[in-house]
Each structure stands twice: as C-alpha cells, then as structure tokens.
Amino acid sequence: MNVRAQWIAFNAILWKEILRFSRIWVQTILPPMITTLLYYVIFGKLIGKQIGEVSGFAYIDYIVPGLILMAVITNSYGNVVASFYSSKFQRSIEEMLVSPLPNYLIVLGFVGGGVARGIAVSIAVMTVTVLFTSIAFHSIWIVISVLLLTSVLFSLGGLINAIYAKSFDDITVVPTFVLTPLTYLGGVFYSVQMLPPFWQKLSLANPILYMVNAFRYGLLGVSDVNVGTAFAAIFLFIAALAWFALYLLGRGHGVRS
C-alpha cells in the first residue's frame, strides 16, 4: 500500500473506533464522570477535611491528578480490549486480516481509538474537576504528554489482552486483578512518602506510580519520583508493548488458526 492508501486505511479504523465509543457514550464517557464526581464528594469534601494537607495541597487537590489519570487508564485500556475482542468474537477482524492493511496500522488504528477515548474521558473528568477545585496547570505540556503517553501505553495493554483473550471473562481479569490494584497502590490517593521504607521501595516497581506522579507534577508541580525517570519508564513500556503486540499479530496469535 502506498502512503496515501495507508493514511486512508488508518483513518478508517480510527474513526470506526471513535464512532463506536461515541455512539455508546452513556456507557463510555458518562460513568467516569460520575465515579470521579463521587470521589470528589466523598474523599475530597467529606473525608478530605479531616485529612488535611498532603505535600502542601488540600487533599482534594492532591487526588485530582490521580483520579483523572485513573479514568484515562481504565478507559483507554477498556476501549481497546473490548473493541478488539468483540471484533474477534464477531469475526469482523477478518475484514482487516484479508485486506492489504499492514499489521502496524491495525495496532495504530486501535491504539488511536483508545487514545481518543482517553482524551475524551479526561476532558469529561476535567470538566467535573473545575466544579470542585481551583487547580491550575503547572506545566500544560507535561499534562498533555503524560495523558497521551499513558493512554497509548494502556491501549497497547488492552490490545495485547484482547489478542490473548478467548472469552469475555478473559477481558475483565486483567483490569480487575491487575490494573485496579496497581492504580490504587500507585499513589492516586496518597504520597508514597507516607509509607514505611519497605513499601516505598516496593511501590517503585509499580509502573503506574510513575505516570500518576508525572501527571501530578504537570498539574501541581509536586512528584514523589523524578519526572525524567517517569518519562523514560513510560517510553520503555510503550516500546516493549508495541513490539510485543506487533509480534503477536505477525504470528497471527489469537486471530489466525
């Protein structure tokens, strides 16, 4: 395929994906808004008052970055894992497999869809946020780049999960037993400096910790980890997952018998 044809093909997948989650916005965009709203009310307004300040910020302000990023993580992952698995389940993935579409465009298209969902959700959640807090962007570029990179990373994760998945159960196992715990333990609700040394060290092995902190730095200007290290870790993960997704598709894993 020449470059123009590839561009057309990429857009075909991307817009199909965007259309898919937009059509069912009540299931895709609204829930994270409501969950975040509840977090703000309960942890921010009600309990937050008792907690006081963390790293020099009111508790509600402190948890804003983590909550936004948590929504982005679950939604970009969920978008790709659900969409790719359902196209496997309905066999419509074969429409792509018989066409001259190269594998990297399949990856880019689905990841593009996951990123679009991540962005849509982050805008929705930020809209809720401004109703409750008055935080300003410390660095808009860090905010944007962490948002994009995080949704790329978790879209790739969702894709790999979907490639392996053989049943609908298989697409909920990872989000429930891996993603959610790692996110909660990734310093969304607390600073790892509040933990005993052993648990602090262990937390550093959690990749989500780096994203949450880099994002918090972008919004608030504080972070438990070095922001440069955080970016390096994110890039490393993206490269590894992208390579792995391409490898699996190249072998036809889960899609060709």
Partner: peptide, 8 residues
C-alpha cells in the same frame, strides 16, 4: 470500512 482498509 472495508473500502477504507483497502485504501480506497
């Protein structure tokens, strides 16, 4: 969509 995948 199918046309798109063929770059039409």
């Amino acid at each position: 969509n199918q046309a798109g995948y063929y770059g039409i």
